[in-house]
Design a protein around this nucleic acid. Sequence first.
DNA 1: GGTATATTTGACAAGTCTGTCCAAAACAAT
DNA 2: ATTGTTTTGGACAGACTTGTCAAATATACC
Lengths: 99, 99
Amino acid sequence: MSNVTFGDYIRKRREEKELPLRKVAAHLDIDTSTLSKVERGERPASPDYLKPLAEILELDLKEVQTTFIADKINKDFGGLEHLPEGLKEAEKQLKRRKK
Amino acid sequence: MSNVTFGDYIRKRREEKELPLRKVAAHLDIDTSTLSKVERGERPASPDYLKPLAEILELDLKEVQTTFIADKINKDFGGLEHLPEGLKEAEKQLKRRKK
DNA sequence: GGTATATTTGACAAGTCTGTCCAAAACAAT
DNA sequence: ATTGTTTTGGACAGACTTGTCAAATATACC
Protein backbone atom coordinates (compact mmCIF):
# COMPACT_ATOMS: atom_id res chain seq x y z
CA MET A 1 0.00 0.00 0.00
CA SER A 2 1.55 3.24 -1.15
CA ASN A 3 1.14 6.93 -0.47
CA VAL A 4 -2.24 7.37 -2.09
CA THR A 5 -5.22 9.51 -1.20
CA PHE A 6 -8.39 7.97 0.11
CA GLY A 7 -10.22 8.96 -3.04
CA ASP A 8 -7.70 7.28 -5.34
CA TYR A 9 -7.77 4.23 -3.14
CA ILE A 10 -11.49 3.63 -3.40
CA ARG A 11 -11.73 4.63 -7.02
CA LYS A 12 -9.06 2.19 -8.00
CA ARG A 13 -10.81 -0.57 -6.13
CA ARG A 14 -14.21 0.31 -7.53
CA GLU A 15 -12.81 0.11 -11.04
CA GLU A 16 -11.16 -3.21 -10.29
CA LYS A 17 -14.53 -4.53 -9.31
CA GLU A 18 -16.15 -2.81 -12.30
CA LEU A 19 -18.84 -1.22 -10.25
CA PRO A 20 -20.43 2.02 -11.43
CA LEU A 21 -20.62 4.99 -9.05
CA ARG A 22 -24.35 4.49 -9.12
CA LYS A 23 -24.17 1.14 -7.39
CA VAL A 24 -21.62 2.08 -4.81
CA ALA A 25 -23.33 5.37 -4.04
CA ALA A 26 -26.65 3.58 -3.60
CA HIS A 27 -25.08 1.26 -1.08
CA LEU A 28 -23.70 4.22 0.84
CA ASP A 29 -27.06 5.90 0.54
CA ILE A 30 -25.65 9.03 -1.04
CA ASP A 31 -25.84 10.70 -4.42
CA THR A 32 -23.68 9.57 -7.31
CA SER A 33 -22.35 13.05 -7.54
CA THR A 34 -21.21 13.09 -3.95
CA LEU A 35 -19.28 9.88 -4.37
CA SER A 36 -17.68 11.16 -7.54
CA LYS A 37 -16.45 14.18 -5.61
CA VAL A 38 -15.14 12.06 -2.78
CA GLU A 39 -13.22 9.86 -5.17
CA ARG A 40 -11.62 12.85 -6.78
CA GLY A 41 -10.83 14.47 -3.44
CA GLU A 42 -13.08 17.40 -4.13
CA ARG A 43 -14.97 16.58 -0.93
CA PRO A 44 -13.87 14.72 2.15
CA ALA A 45 -15.30 11.32 2.91
CA SER A 46 -17.60 11.03 5.87
CA PRO A 47 -16.72 8.36 8.44
CA ASP A 48 -20.20 7.01 7.81
CA TYR A 49 -19.08 5.81 4.40
CA LEU A 50 -16.35 3.56 5.66
CA LYS A 51 -18.23 0.46 6.66
CA PRO A 52 -20.52 0.36 3.62
CA LEU A 53 -17.51 0.98 1.40
CA ALA A 54 -15.61 -1.90 2.92
CA GLU A 55 -18.64 -4.09 2.36
CA ILE A 56 -19.39 -3.34 -1.23
CA LEU A 57 -15.78 -3.09 -2.34
CA GLU A 58 -14.90 -6.19 -0.36
CA LEU A 59 -12.08 -4.54 1.46
CA ASP A 60 -10.87 -5.02 5.00
CA LEU A 61 -12.47 -2.37 7.18
CA LYS A 62 -9.19 -1.93 8.95
CA GLU A 63 -7.45 -1.00 5.72
CA VAL A 64 -10.24 1.36 4.69
CA GLN A 65 -10.17 3.14 8.03
CA THR A 66 -6.43 3.31 8.07
CA THR A 67 -6.28 4.89 4.65
CA PHE A 68 -9.03 7.31 5.58
CA ILE A 69 -7.30 8.40 8.78
CA ALA A 70 -3.87 8.78 7.25
CA ASP A 71 -5.26 10.84 4.40
CA LYS A 72 -7.28 13.09 6.67
CA ILE A 73 -4.45 13.68 9.07
CA ASN A 74 -2.32 14.67 6.16
CA LYS A 75 -4.89 17.14 4.89
CA ASP A 76 -5.77 18.54 8.31
CA PHE A 77 -2.31 18.89 9.81
CA GLY A 78 -0.01 18.86 6.81
CA GLY A 79 0.95 22.45 7.45
CA LEU A 80 2.24 21.93 10.99
CA GLU A 81 5.94 21.36 11.25
CA HIS A 82 5.73 19.26 14.39
CA LEU A 83 3.22 16.78 13.09
CA PRO A 84 5.52 13.79 13.66
CA GLU A 85 5.78 14.59 17.34
CA GLY A 86 2.04 15.21 17.50
CA LEU A 87 1.41 11.75 16.10
CA LYS A 88 3.77 10.17 18.57
CA GLU A 89 2.00 11.93 21.39
CA ALA A 90 -1.40 10.84 20.14
CA GLU A 91 -0.18 7.25 20.08
CA LYS A 92 1.22 7.53 23.55
CA GLN A 93 -2.11 8.78 24.82
CA LEU A 94 -3.95 5.96 23.12
CA LYS A 95 -1.77 3.40 24.82
CA ARG A 96 -2.23 5.13 28.12
CA ARG A 97 -6.01 5.13 27.61
CA LYS A 98 -6.17 1.42 27.02
CA LYS A 99 -5.40 0.72 30.64
CA MET B 1 3.29 15.86 30.27
CA SER B 2 0.16 13.85 30.91
CA ASN B 3 -3.06 13.05 29.08
CA VAL B 4 -4.57 16.50 29.19
CA THR B 5 -6.71 18.44 26.73
CA PHE B 6 -5.32 21.40 24.89
CA GLY B 7 -7.65 23.71 26.78
CA ASP B 8 -6.53 22.48 30.17
CA TYR B 9 -2.94 22.75 29.06
CA ILE B 10 -3.07 26.40 28.14
CA ARG B 11 -5.32 27.37 31.01
CA LYS B 12 -3.00 25.84 33.53
CA ARG B 13 -0.07 27.66 32.03
CA ARG B 14 -1.92 30.96 31.83
CA GLU B 15 -2.76 30.71 35.49
CA GLU B 16 0.82 29.85 36.35
CA LYS B 17 1.86 33.05 34.66
CA GLU B 18 -1.04 34.91 36.27
CA LEU B 19 -2.24 36.40 33.05
CA PRO B 20 -5.90 37.33 32.62
CA LEU B 21 -7.81 36.04 29.61
CA ARG B 22 -7.98 39.64 28.50
CA LYS B 23 -4.24 39.88 27.95
CA VAL B 24 -3.77 36.56 26.26
CA ALA B 25 -6.80 37.02 24.05
CA ALA B 26 -5.54 40.44 22.99
CA HIS B 27 -2.25 38.91 21.94
CA LEU B 28 -4.07 36.29 19.87
CA ASP B 29 -6.27 39.03 18.48
CA ILE B 30 -9.48 37.30 19.53
CA ASP B 31 -12.26 37.99 21.98
CA THR B 32 -11.88 37.14 25.66
CA SER B 33 -14.97 35.03 25.40
CA THR B 34 -13.56 32.97 22.57
CA LEU B 35 -10.43 32.18 24.52
CA SER B 36 -12.47 31.25 27.55
CA LYS B 37 -14.37 28.77 25.43
CA VAL B 38 -11.24 27.34 23.93
CA GLU B 39 -9.73 26.82 27.35
CA ARG B 40 -12.82 24.98 28.52
CA GLY B 41 -12.98 22.89 25.36
CA GLU B 42 -16.29 24.38 24.35
CA ARG B 43 -14.72 25.44 21.06
CA PRO B 44 -11.74 24.06 19.24
CA ALA B 45 -8.55 26.08 19.01
CA SER B 46 -7.58 27.44 15.64
CA PRO B 47 -4.07 26.63 14.41
CA ASP B 48 -3.60 30.39 14.12
CA TYR B 49 -3.53 30.63 17.89
CA LEU B 50 -0.57 28.35 18.37
CA LYS B 51 2.33 30.65 17.69
CA PRO B 52 0.97 33.63 19.63
CA LEU B 53 0.09 31.32 22.49
CA ALA B 54 3.59 29.91 22.62
CA GLU B 55 4.93 33.45 22.67
CA ILE B 56 2.84 34.94 25.39
CA LEU B 57 2.77 31.86 27.58
CA GLU B 58 6.49 31.32 27.00
CA LEU B 59 6.06 27.77 25.90
CA ASP B 60 7.96 25.81 23.31
CA LEU B 61 6.02 25.96 20.05
CA LYS B 62 6.78 22.32 19.51
CA GLU B 63 5.07 21.38 22.74
CA VAL B 64 2.09 23.60 22.02
CA GLN B 65 1.64 22.13 18.56
CA THR B 66 2.11 18.61 19.80
CA THR B 67 -0.54 19.02 22.45
CA PHE B 68 -2.87 20.63 19.96
CA ILE B 69 -2.47 17.85 17.42
CA ALA B 70 -2.80 15.00 19.90
CA ASP B 71 -5.95 16.54 21.35
CA LYS B 72 -7.54 17.16 17.99
CA ILE B 73 -6.76 13.69 16.67
CA ASN B 74 -8.36 12.30 19.75
CA LYS B 75 -11.50 14.36 19.27
CA ASP B 76 -11.71 13.83 15.52
CA PHE B 77 -10.95 10.13 15.32
CA GLY B 78 -11.60 8.86 18.81
CA GLY B 79 -14.53 6.81 17.59
CA LEU B 80 -12.58 4.76 15.04
CA GLU B 81 -11.38 1.43 16.27
CA HIS B 82 -8.35 1.31 13.99
CA LEU B 83 -6.95 4.67 14.96
CA PRO B 84 -3.62 3.21 16.11
CA GLU B 85 -2.99 1.70 12.70
CA GLY B 86 -4.11 4.94 11.06
CA LEU B 87 -1.53 6.85 13.05
CA LYS B 88 1.18 4.40 12.13
CA GLU B 89 0.28 4.77 8.49
CA ALA B 90 0.29 8.56 8.71
CA GLU B 91 3.77 8.41 10.19
CA LYS B 92 4.98 6.06 7.52
CA GLN B 93 3.73 8.44 4.86
CA LEU B 94 5.43 11.38 6.52
CA LYS B 95 8.74 9.60 6.48
CA ARG B 96 8.24 8.63 2.88
CA ARG B 97 7.48 12.22 1.99
CA LYS B 98 10.62 13.55 3.53
CA LYS B 99 12.69 11.99 0.77
C1' DG C 1 -23.92 9.16 -36.16
C1' DG C 2 -27.17 7.66 -32.36
C1' DT C 3 -28.44 5.70 -28.02
C1' DA C 4 -27.57 4.28 -23.48
C1' DT C 5 -24.98 4.57 -19.48
C1' DA C 6 -21.52 6.73 -16.53
C1' DT C 7 -19.37 10.62 -14.72
C1' DT C 8 -18.60 15.50 -13.74
C1' DT C 9 -20.07 20.25 -12.96
C1' DG C 10 -22.16 23.99 -10.77
C1' DA C 11 -26.01 26.19 -8.37
C1' DC C 12 -28.36 25.63 -4.40
C1' DA C 13 -30.59 24.72 0.50
C1' DA C 14 -29.93 23.32 5.00
C1' DG C 15 -27.03 22.70 8.53
C1' DT C 16 -22.81 23.59 11.12
C1' DC C 17 -18.92 26.33 12.77
C1' DT C 18 -16.36 30.36 14.21
C1' DG C 19 -15.92 34.31 16.46
C1' DT C 20 -18.22 38.74 18.38
C1' DC C 21 -20.99 41.35 21.33
C1' DC C 22 -22.74 42.43 25.51
C1' DA C 23 -25.10 41.11 29.55
C1' DA C 24 -24.80 38.20 33.53
C1' DA C 25 -22.27 35.88 36.96
C1' DA C 26 -18.29 34.95 39.82
C1' DC C 27 -14.47 36.60 42.35
C1' DA C 28 -11.45 39.66 45.05
C1' DA C 29 -10.58 43.08 48.26
C1' DT C 30 -11.86 46.38 51.29
C1' DA D 1 -22.54 45.71 50.36
C1' DT D 2 -20.03 48.27 46.62
C1' DT D 3 -16.64 48.65 43.46
C1' DG D 4 -13.46 46.86 40.07
C1' DT D 5 -11.98 43.01 37.57
C1' DT D 6 -12.26 38.57 35.42
C1' DT D 7 -14.79 34.98 33.51
C1' DT D 8 -18.83 32.74 31.42
C1' DG D 9 -23.33 32.31 28.72
C1' DG D 10 -26.07 32.83 24.96
C1' DA D 11 -27.92 35.13 20.90
C1' DC D 12 -26.34 36.37 16.66
C1' DA D 13 -24.07 37.16 11.80
C1' DG D 14 -21.20 35.59 8.33
C1' DA D 15 -18.56 32.03 6.49
C1' DC D 16 -18.07 27.46 5.43
C1' DT D 17 -19.64 22.52 4.75
C1' DT D 18 -22.30 18.80 3.22
C1' DG D 19 -25.06 16.64 0.19
C1' DT D 20 -28.73 17.03 -3.65
C1' DC D 21 -30.47 18.04 -8.03
C1' DA D 22 -30.47 18.75 -12.77
C1' DA D 23 -27.87 19.77 -16.67
C1' DA D 24 -23.68 19.02 -19.23
C1' DT D 25 -20.12 16.13 -20.66
C1' DA D 26 -17.71 11.89 -21.48
C1' DT D 27 -17.48 6.97 -22.61
C1' DA D 28 -18.96 2.69 -24.79
C1' DC D 29 -21.10 0.21 -28.06
C1' DC D 30 -23.86 -0.71 -32.02
